[in-house]
């Protein structure tokens, strides 16, 4: 079982992901923006991995995995990126950014339950 932080602003997508996670004995904490994500990480440092949507209603999900101004890490959680594309950038560019942030897996929407569970297994191994 893994303790996962899900950062996703689309309620329908979040609901379907949580359904899959909970039916496979994982524990999920869902937040929909970066402020909530930062709060959750500071409150609970026992997450095993984060599942992050890149486009978060005007916020950049990957910025949580870049550095603070003082060079310190915001978080070093294993990162699973999910994206269906967004304004201004191609999925190829999003993938490059995710790789540069150290993402374990990049899943393109729509993805199967098996794809998600495989990515989680890889992230927590």
């Amino acid at each position: 079982m893994a303790n996962l932080l899900l950062i996703e602003d689309d309620p329908a997508v979040a609901e379907s992901i949580i359904f899959v996670l909970e039916n496979n004995n994982h524990q999920a904490t869902h937040v929909s923006n970066l402020e909530q994500a930062t709060h959750s990480i500071h409150q609970d440092n026992h997450f095993d991995a984060a599942i992050v949507d890149v486009w978060l209603s005007g916020e950049d999900g990957l910025s949580l995995f870049q550095r603070n101004e003082d060079g310190s890490e915001k978080t070093n959680l294993p990162l699973i990126v999910i994206s269906g594309g967004g304004p201004g950038r191609t999925l190829e560019a999003v993938t490059a950014r995710a790789d540069a942030c150290g993402a374990v897996t990049v899943l393109y929407k729509p993805f199967s339950d098996e794809d998600l569970l495989g990515a989680i297994a890889k992230a927590i191994e």
Partner: peptide, 15 residues
């Protein structure tokens, strides 16, 4: 992932 290994998926990837 398999579901998006399609022409439409590639189009979105390449923009």
């Amino acid at each position: 992932n398999e579901q998006v290994r399609t022409v439409n998926g590639l189009a979105k990837y390449l923009g």
